[in-house]
Lab assay of single mutants.
Amino acid sequence: LIVDEAINEDNSVVSLSQPKMDELQLFRGDTVLLKGKKRREAVCIVLSDDTCSDEKIRMNRVVRNNLRVRLGDVISIQPCP
């Protein structure tokens, strides 16, 4: 998924579009594992966002710094076991 700027300022939340959440079989409030660069990982709570496009994930600056990614970078997402 492509990293995009978050609207809310919550450090533990990322936003996906509802069709993408359905495709990944995620529900609102699920915890997910995000994988960024240099084997960096972060655990976040996923919320749906109608304004977010299907191929993007919204996260704020703190999460991006933790993953060592910038806007427009590609990250992977998976549900936490």
Rank of each mutant, 00 (worst) to 15 (best):
F27G: 13
S48G: 12
D10S: 06
D54I: 07
V43N: 05
I57A: 03
V69H: 00
C52P: 02
V14I: 14
P19F: 15
E55H: 10
Q25N: 14
I57P: 00
V32E: 00
S15Y: 12
R40T: 15
V43Q: 15
C52T: 11
R61V: 12
P19L: 11
E55R: 12
D73N: 07
I2V: 09
E9G: 09
R28S: 12
E41A: 04
R61A: 14
Q25I: 10
E9A: 11
P79F: 12
V14T: 01
N8I: 10
E5A: 08
S53N: 14
G29Q: 07
K37R: 13
Q18E: 07
N65A: 11
V13W: 12
V74M: 07
S12I: 06
I2S: 05
I75P: 00
K38Y: 08
C44M: 15
L71A: 15
E9C: 14
I7D: 13
T51N: 15
G29H: 14
N60M: 02
V3P: 00
V32D: 03
K35W: 06
A42M: 11
L24K: 00
A6K: 06
L71K: 11
S17F: 02
V63T: 15
V43T: 09
K56M: 07
A42P: 01
E41S: 08
M21R: 01
V14H: 00
N65Y: 06
V63P: 00
L67C: 05
L26R: 00
N8F: 08
S48W: 03
D50G: 13
D30G: 07
M21E: 02
R28L: 13
R64D: 00
T31W: 06
S12D: 13
K35D: 03
K20L: 13
D54M: 12
I7Q: 05
E9P: 14
F27W: 07
R61H: 06
L67K: 00
R40K: 03
D4L: 05
G29N: 10
E5H: 05
V13S: 10
L1V: 12
V46M: 03
Q78N: 14
R70C: 15
N8D: 15
K35I: 13
I77E: 01
V62P: 03
I45D: 05
R68L: 10
P79C: 08
Q25M: 07
A6H: 12
L16W: 00
T31G: 09
L24H: 03
L24M: 04
P19N: 04
D73G: 05
D50Q: 04
K56C: 13
S15H: 10
N11S: 14
L16G: 00
K35E: 07
G36Q: 02
C80F: 09
S12F: 10
N65C: 07
L71V: 10
L34M: 09
D73K: 04
I2R: 06
K38S: 08
K35C: 14
T51P: 04
C80K: 02
K20P: 00
I7C: 11
R40E: 09
A42T: 08
V46T: 06
E23K: 05
N65P: 00
P19A: 11
S15W: 08
S48L: 13
A42H: 13
N60W: 00
A42I: 04
P19K: 04
M21A: 02
I45N: 14
R40I: 10
D10T: 12
V3L: 02
Q18L: 09
V32Q: 01
T31V: 07
D22A: 07
V62C: 13
K20I: 12
E23N: 07
E23A: 07
V69M: 10
T31C: 04
N66E: 14
I2G: 03
V14N: 01
T51K: 09
L71F: 05
D50K: 07
R39G: 13
D22S: 08
G72R: 05
M21I: 07
R28Y: 15
R58E: 03
M59G: 00
S76W: 05
F27T: 15
T51W: 04
S12W: 06
E23D: 04
R68W: 05
I77A: 04
P79A: 13
E23L: 06
D4W: 08
D4I: 14
V13M: 06
K20R: 11
V14Q: 00
V3E: 01
G36D: 04
E5Y: 14
V74K: 13
Q78P: 04
S76H: 12
V3N: 00
N65I: 03
V69K: 02
V74P: 13
V32R: 00
E9L: 08
V62I: 13
R61M: 05
N11V: 09
K20C: 08
E41C: 03
I75A: 04
E23T: 10
V32I: 11
C80R: 09
S15M: 09
R58G: 06
P79G: 08
M59F: 03
V62N: 15
V32C: 13
I57V: 11
V74H: 06
